[in-house]
Lab assay of single mutants.
Amino acid sequence: NTCEECGKPIGCDCKDLSYKDRHWHEACFHCSQCRNSLVDKPFAAKEDQLLCTDCYSNEY
């Protein structure tokens, strides 16, 4: 699979995080606004962007 954020392949030695058929490296899986990691945290998706709950609450 190819990472949505950096565009590089996700190798066998990396954790592949996925959501709705989109894939990310663990280090690339972060909020589109504040850039905080979303690994093991709740998040929301809006208009193809992933947002942490704080940024989502502030926007919507």
Rank of each mutant, 00 (worst) to 15 (best):
S18G: 06
A27K: 11
L38V: 09
L38D: 01
N36W: 05
S37A: 11
S37D: 07
W24M: 04
C3D: 01
C3G: 00
Q49T: 13
E26S: 09
H25Q: 00
K8C: 04
K46M: 07
S32N: 05
I10K: 02
K15E: 04
A45S: 09
Y60T: 15
D21Y: 02
C31Y: 01
K20W: 02
A45Y: 08
L51D: 04
A44I: 05
K8L: 09
E47W: 03
E26F: 03
I10S: 01
D40E: 14
S18R: 09
E4N: 08
R22A: 13
E59I: 06
R22C: 03
Y19H: 08
A45L: 10
L17C: 15
A27W: 09
C12S: 13
H30I: 09
C14E: 14
K8A: 08
S37E: 10
N36D: 08
G7H: 04
D54V: 07
S57C: 06
H30A: 12
D40A: 13
D54L: 07
N1C: 03
D48P: 06
Y60C: 15
N1P: 00
P9E: 07
C28T: 04
C28F: 00
K46C: 07
Y19V: 11
Y56D: 15
L38C: 01
I10F: 02
G7S: 03
Y56H: 12
Q49W: 06
H23W: 03
R35Y: 07
F29D: 02
C34E: 01
P9N: 01
D48R: 09
I10G: 00
H25R: 00
K8Y: 04
H30R: 11
D16R: 08
F43A: 10
E4Y: 10
S18M: 09
C31W: 00
P42Q: 15
T53H: 14
C34Y: 01
D21F: 02
D16E: 08
P9Y: 01
W24N: 06
T53M: 08
N36Q: 14
Q49V: 11
C52I: 01
D54T: 08
K46W: 07
F29S: 06
D48I: 03
K20A: 10
Q33C: 00
P9R: 03
K15F: 05
K15C: 03
C52G: 04
V39Q: 11
S57Q: 12
N36M: 11
R35S: 09
C34L: 01
H30S: 10
S57H: 06
C31K: 03
L17Y: 07
Q33M: 08
F29L: 05
N58P: 15
E59T: 10
S37M: 08
Y60I: 10
C12W: 07
A27H: 05
V39S: 11
C31L: 01
L17E: 15
R35F: 12
V39D: 12
K46E: 14
A27N: 15
L38I: 15
V39N: 11
K46P: 12
L51G: 04
R35W: 10
G7A: 15
H25D: 00
L50A: 04
D48E: 13
Y19K: 03
D13K: 08
K20N: 12
C28Y: 00
L38T: 04
K46N: 14
N36L: 13
C31Q: 00
L38Y: 00
H23Q: 06
C14D: 13
C52N: 05
N36P: 01
E47C: 10
C3R: 00
I10L: 05
L38P: 02
A44F: 02
L17K: 14
Q33L: 10
F29N: 04
D54E: 11
E5A: 11
L17N: 06
E26C: 03
W24A: 03
C52A: 02
D13I: 05
D48V: 08
G11P: 02
L17R: 13
S57N: 07
N58D: 14
P9K: 04
N58L: 09
Y60A: 15
A44E: 15
Y19C: 01
E47G: 09
N58R: 12
S32K: 12
K20T: 06
E47I: 06
Y60H: 15
N1A: 01
D48M: 08
A45I: 03
C28R: 02
K46Y: 10
L17H: 05
L50M: 13
R22M: 15
C12L: 08
L38H: 01
S37Y: 06
C34D: 01
P9T: 10
T2I: 15
Y19S: 06
A27R: 08
K41F: 06
S57F: 00
K46D: 15
Y56N: 15
T2L: 09
Y56T: 14
E59S: 11
N58F: 10
N58V: 13
C52M: 01
K8E: 10
R22V: 04
S32W: 11
D13L: 04
D21I: 00
Q33S: 10
E59V: 11
D21P: 00
R22P: 02
E59K: 06
K20R: 09
Y56I: 12
F29P: 03
C6P: 03
L17F: 13
F43D: 06
L17A: 13
E26Q: 06
N36H: 13
A44Q: 14
Y56C: 13
S37G: 12
V39F: 08
L38N: 04
K41S: 10
S57W: 02
C12I: 15
E26T: 09
I10D: 00
D40V: 05
L17W: 13
P42N: 15
N1F: 10
T53G: 12
D21S: 07
L50D: 03
D13G: 11
W24V: 01
E5H: 14
G11V: 02
D54Y: 07
G11H: 05
D21W: 00
S57L: 02
D16Q: 08
C12K: 14
F43M: 14
L51Y: 11
P9A: 08
C12Q: 13
T2E: 02
E47V: 05
T53V: 07
T2C: 15
Y60D: 15
G7W: 05
Y19E: 07
Y19Q: 07
R35V: 08
A44W: 06
N1S: 02
Q49S: 10
L51I: 03
G7V: 07
L17I: 13
R35C: 10
Y19A: 05
D54G: 13
S37P: 08
Y19N: 08
A27S: 11
L38E: 03
S37K: 11
F29T: 06
C6Q: 00
